[in-house]
Design a binder for these strands. Structure first.
Lengths: 235, 235
DNA sequence: CGTGGACAAATTGTATGCAATCGTGCATGC
DNA sequence: GCATGCACGATTGCATACAATTTGTCCACG
């Protein structure tokens, strides 16, 4: 029984009368982002069941939007569904995780290489600015905000590829791996290394060196994967 | 109003009492594959609306499974949905199509390279056998069966990468492009060229030459894209 | 004659009730 | 003691009714 996903001010009874939601958004969309965030943040651990009636009751909605949200997350690979069985938070095997990391490395390398070719001036300036901001967070030793800014850093490179489909695919893969790769920033030593790797990526992109940008990004993701593997072994 | 997707023996009234479906499968799954096939085969043209009540009536089911099937296809990128608006068969812009082809080329190249490294003996033999079978279809000038076998050929390379996630991603991308890339086999001249490109790919994989396999596959997909672009221009 | 707003129709979004299906546990026979 | 069949409980799968929202249209007004 997931103790998470609780609506902030749920009364003792059924939490009816959901607060106003922004126009143009459906309950399904709200639930989808809510559950997705809970999964990628690690609040919902892999293997944990997502029962429709349970979630519906917690949020004061019917099963229908909950059901659709779960199906959407299943299509995105964040949860696994079996017929007539509760959906569970996705729990890929270590072999599959390794394969996903390998693909992420290639996709990110592609993005970086394309970004080196196609980023315009404004994008290059923004990339540099974000890189500087990340340097400060390394100095301050703020893993939480570093992780947040790090996502934006990579996202900027995705969109800098000027290939929306590539950007979507890469972001989706990163998201699916997010529940497993974010614990690495607990180790502060990783922050310095991560930023040093970023530095080489940024330099290559700003030099318009496609091959170098791809290679440096591939090495960066490989380092992230190695850190994760070590973490798993030690656990 | 989609005149397709008609259930074979639908009476004039509401087609109730759906024929028995294989145990372990849901109505939603049946509808999903049915609609997906109609889209990739080109029976449902891009931009065509998919109204829930219409499809539900045609197949003698309620809106619920139809709705879920459509959402699943939307997640797979085959249809587009807007709030309170009929879903339509996906109609990507030419720029987006180009970006998707570029990504497909890279993903297929990755698969081919990994297949060169990781395919076992049985897989290599099957690849060679399929390649020979394709040669015969080229001689016979049978574009329809060539297309079918061609799908199996590429699928074999996907699974030969021994990276299921990579295989899934590549197949999904190929499927999304399928409605736009299959018309190329109308031109019989393309069959010979396609098979010649395959030949170089197979040779590289069997030689365990990762770089060559990737390069040849990239060139093959690029040729497919060029053919498509030419076709679009002429239309 | 053009423009703004309100209204109506069509379609999806959501709620609820019932049916189907899968797993589990127990009783039963070997 | 172990395998097998059966019945029960829990959960999803599906059907139907109702609500919400968007869009197009029509009319009033500038």
């Amino acid at each position: 029984m997931p103790e998470f996903l609780r609506v902030p001010a749920a009364g003792p009874g059924v939490a009816r009368a959901r607060r106003t939601r922004r126009p143009g958004t459906t309950r399904m969309q709200e639930l989808r982002t809510l559950i997705a965030d809970a999964i990628v943040c690690g609040q919902l651990a892999p293997g944990m069941p997502l029962e429709e009636v349970e979630i519906a009751r917690r949020h004061g909605v019917s099963r229908t939007p909950v059901r659709e949200a779960i199906r959407a997350l299943a299509a995105a690979g964040l949860v696994e569904t079996r017929a007539h069985r509760s959906a569970i938070v996705a729990r890929p095997s270590s072999e599959r995780l390794r394969g996903m990391f390998d693909v992420l490395a290639e996709l990110e390398a592609l993005c970086a290489g394309q970004a080196a070719l196609h980023m315009d001036l404004a994008e290059r300036q923004e990339l540099q600015a974000l890189h500087v901001a990340l340097a400060e967070l390394v100095q301050r030793g703020d893993p939480r905000r570093y992780h947040e800014m790090n996502e934006r850093f990579h996202g900027l490179i995705y969109s800098g590829s000027h290939n929306p489909y590539l950007a979507e695919l890469t972001l989706a893969t990163r998201t699916r791996l997010s529940p497993f790769s974010q614990m690495q920033f607990r180790a502060l030593g990783r922050l310095h290394l991560s930023h040093a790797e970023h530095d080489r990526v940024v330099a290559a992109i700003l030099s318009r060196d496609q091959a170098a940008a791809a290679a440096e990004m591939r090495a960066h993701i490989a380092a992230v994967e190695t850190t994760f593997e070590r973490y798993v072994e030690s656990a």
